[in-house]
Nucleic acid binder design. Structure first.
Length: 568
RNA sequence: CGGGGUAUAGCGCAGCCUGGUAGCGCAACUGCUUUGGGAGCAGUGGGUCGGGAGUUCGAAUCUCUCUACCCCGACCA
């Protein structure tokens, strides 16, 4: 490709509304352009990268035995009524009507459609296991799209769905998918971790996420510094920090604490550490409000809380009026002593003794509070966020934290959908059985952004070799005037093309500095600079985008040198 | 959806308070010079000032209203 025949429109200035580096660089290089909130056009340059990611995914999925197909993006509402998921997805579903006023959704995911397909196509256990996948545009009406294609409303996803007679078979395919995902992200060339995850609106028993490690990641990943344990913070088990409960040593004491509302204020006022206090949080329950209690220096894990049977999902803190009605005090003074509602405490809290809590009366707290003697709870649960320095839940090592971008998520769904939609097969005994199901998602467009987040410097993108839009850039100095430079550049261009190497030659009439800055921004891995100066010595200059060290290479050997570097 | 903000040329912004012929930088186009680190000079094109309504002799500017977009919180590939 020659630049004058390509669509190359770069910008020197960083766009005003782009917050994270991948978004900025994708706009500056002209890979994408915004059409509306969370809606992006992929320009030819961006599409080249997107298609490389897509092809790597396709290769590995095919190698794993999965079968590619393509389902409609538009789905009849009736399918979603069968599984009752309209509520789960809420406002994220984009609803549309056809000319006859029939209701449809633009698909945010395809469990319903594939299950409908499979219940009609698959009747016998002999046809199982089977794993279908597609690479397709999805739409989710995100409350707040941001970060360019990282969290857009319309995006490209690879989604796969496997069907099985038994749980064992499901687990086998799940493992295969885990391996395929590992292969995919390795081939793309990104640093990632596979972590335990909450399964959210998709449902099912077990799930893991694949996170590309990057400081701008929206998720916190907890991992053991010396073991294999790794989990999304939302899911990460938090162990009790106290092995057993000590016997009370202090007497219960009601103290006046005028105006002390936050834990921080209270600790200063009483000259104690926040780990000696507890936080009592009142949330809406399925029947009555529930008190969730974590230690003063801990934070409530909202995903864990919402997953509790007694707690309403999604999680909602009750408002000031409801608090007043229940406790007689305001939010800053709630405590467990004499509190008349369901009380669920965190594991650590259950083992605390001689602690401090609110007095359920404004401007009063209790010190020296002890369980059983002074107050009781109804259940012990894992309620808090794990923290750096906690013991790893599997007993090996200590937890550390990293930021991650979720690019993949795999689930064991079990028979949630097959039961709801009556997707059954006959087993060996001729008996009808609901199929076991797995599903496996991967964000294709998000992967491109994640790659940039992980691979850039202050000059621009540094593409990993396997997804670079071009492998080699030929940068001729004074291509327009110097016949000798033009000849040398055109010759190398033709030779590389003949070898099937993806090469871009910059034949624009621009000054050298402009050209070099442009290609640093674009991040093409291998760059060859051809100028009269080096041609005098029958040489050209080679530069690698990663280290930017330049070296002179004989003009006659540059072609084979490049071919070897690209193969390596 | 709640809170905050913005909307003027392709991009980044000024002008608005105090109403009077729409401006700057970058980008684009033409010419000349320059050619190994985002060049210089001269010139050119491009805007119903987000939409609608109102006040006024006169509205980018004042008032009302709608819309879009961005940021902060709850969701997810």
């Amino acid at each position: 490709m020659k630049t004058t025949a390509f669509h190359l429109v770069t910008r020197k200035e960083t766009p005003q509304d782009a917050e994270i580096i991948s978004h900025q660089l994708m706009i500056r290089t002209g890979m994408i352009r915004k059409l509306g909130a969370g809606l992006y056009t992929w320009a030819p340059l961006g599409l080249r990268v997107l298609q490389k990611v897509e092809q790597i995914i396709r290769d590995e999925m095919n190698a794993s035995g999965a079968l590619e197909m393509l389902m409609p993006a538009v789905q009849p509402k009736e399918l979603w009524q069968e599984t009752g998921r309209i509520e789960d997805f809420g406002g994220q579903l984009l609803a549309i009507k056809d000319r006859a006023e029939r209701d449809y959704f633009f698909g945010p995911t395809h469990e319903e459609v594939i299950t409908d397909f499979v219940r009609n196509e698959i009747n016998s256990y002999k046809q199982l296991p089977i794993n279908f996948y597609q690479i397709q545009t999805k739409f989710r009406d995100e409350i707040r799209p941001r970060f360019g294609v990282m969290r857009s409303r319309e995006f490209i996803m690879k989604d796969a769905y496997s069907f099985h007679l038994t749980q064992e078979s499901l687990e086998q395919t799940y493992q295969t998918m885990q391996q395929a995902y590992t292969n995919i992200i390795n081939r793309i060339g990104l640093d990632f971790r596979c972590v335990l995850a909450d399964s959210g609106a998709i449902g099912g028993s077990g799930s893991q996420e694949f996170h590309v490690i990057a400081d701008s990641g929206e998720d916190a990943i907890m991992y053991s510094d010396s073991g294999d344990y790794a989990a999304n913070l939302e899911k990460c088990e938090a162990v009790s920090l106290l092995h057993e409960r000590q016997a009370p040593t202090a007497a219960l004491n009601k103290v006046s604490t005028p105006g002390q509302k936050t834990i921080e204020d209270l600790c200063k006022f009483l000259a104690i550490d926040s780990s000696q206090t507890i936080k009592t949080l009142l949330v809406a329950g399925t029947e009555k409000p529930v008190a969730l209690v974590v230690r003063g220096d801990h934070s409530l894990n909202e995903v864990k809380a919402a997953n509790l049977a007694a707690v309403a999902s999604p999680l909602r803190m009750i408002d000031d009026e409801e608090i007043k009605a229940l406790t007689g005090c305001d939010a800053g003074s709630i405590g467990v002593k004499g509190l008349d509602t369901t009380i669920i405490v965190d594991r650590t809290v259950a083992n605390m003794s001689d602690f401090v809590c609110g007095g359920n009366e404004n401007d009063f707290h209790y010190t020296g509070v002890n369980w059983e003697r002074d107050a009781n709870f109804d259940a012990i649960e894992d309620l808090r966020d794990a923290m750096v320095g906690d013991p790893s839940p599997d007993g090996v090592g200590t937890l550390q934290v990293a930021r991650g971008i979720e690019v993949g998520h795999i689930f064991q769904l079990g028979n949630k959908y097959s039961k709801a939609m009556n997707a059954v097969v006959l087993n060996e005994q001729g008996k009808s059985k609901a199929m076991e199901m797995g599903c496996y998602g991967m964000g294709v467009s998000r992967m491109v952004a994640a790659a940039i987040e992980q691979h850039h410097d202050d000059k621009g993108i540094i593409w990993p070799a396997n997804i670079a839009p071009f492998s080699v850039a030929i940068l001729p100095m004074n291509y327009q005037k110097s016949e000798r430079v033009k000849q040398a550049a055109d010759e190398l261009y033709a030779k590389l093309q003949a070898r099937g190497i993806e090469v871009i030659l910059d034949d624009r009439k621009v000054r050298p500095g402009f050209m070099m800055s442009d290609f640093e921004l674009l991040g093409i891995p291998h760059q060859v600079i051809i100028g009269d100066r080096s041609l005098d010595e029958n040489q050209v200059e080679y530069r690698n985008r990663t280290d930017m060290e330049s070296m002179k290479i004989n003009r006659d050997t540059i072609e084979t040198v490049l071919a070897e570097k690209i193969k390596a």
